[in-house]
Design a protein around this nucleic acid. Structure first.
Lengths: 119, 119
DNA sequence: CGGTATCCACCTAGATACTG
DNA sequence: CAGTATCTAGGTGGATACCG
């Protein structure tokens, strides 16, 4: 059974990483998940905690995370509207990854000068 | 001592994550670093191991990684040309992050159906 | 071998205004 | 409150051709 170039490429153990990147590769996704790790949050709370992202972005990323089964969106039929976001078990299982990223970032920020912003 | 909105936002412990994302947020950067974790690689080798990225992309990402001090580029003045890429200590320090990402991806791919491609 | 240069289709993400 | 709609500048990344 011949191995195609693509197969060979993907069997180089790249797939898990690729899968991961697809899930949390979004610019603000790690941030959102990170914030939700401390518990259920309302939309407006998330916005406040991630002010560098616009409403549109937050919403978009939340929808994608929801579609990927990482978070759950709960709408309370009250007025004024209330929407809460929670990590699903799937989403919670990413904690170690975020934790590791966070710790590395922390160490890096201590020992090095601030990361230069690209652009 | 008053905390500005921006300060408050960034003091929510988002910074380390943001730093991390800036460094390895590039589409192929985790892949490149991951590949280099198994040792020094030539440019052509990297290209073969990450066929989903074009030459332009690989080169670009390599340059950024180099600029960020994560990898070292060594040119051997021979003919035909030979260029090798190696992780710097800084780059190696990211291993745990990639490792964690990889492991999560692996587990996820086992228990779940393939990640659906966005778009 | 290890790139660069150029062109271009798409995508991203911000700003702004509006809604149930 | 929690979005959606629209427009748009700028960035991303693929294809292709060429170079030292």
């Amino acid at each position: 059974m011949p191995t195609s170039k693509a197969d060979k490429a993907e069997s180089l153990n790249n797939m898990p990483l690729i899968a991961m990147i697809k899930l949390i590769g979004g610019k603000y996704k790690p941030l959102i998940l990170w914030r939700l790790m401390t518990g259920t949050k309302r939309y407006s709370t998330l916005r406040k905690e991630i002010p560098c992202a616009t409403a549109k972005m937050i919403t978009q990323q939340l929808r994608e995370l929801e579609a990927d089964g990482l978070i759950k969106r709960t709408v309370y039929p009250v007025v004024p509207p209330k929407v809460e976001y929670t990590l699903t078990p799937q989403g919670e299982s990413i904690s170690p990854v975020l934790q590791t990223m966070y710790e590395w970032g922390q160490k890096h920020l201590q020992t090095n000068q601030p990361i230069k912003t690209k652009t």
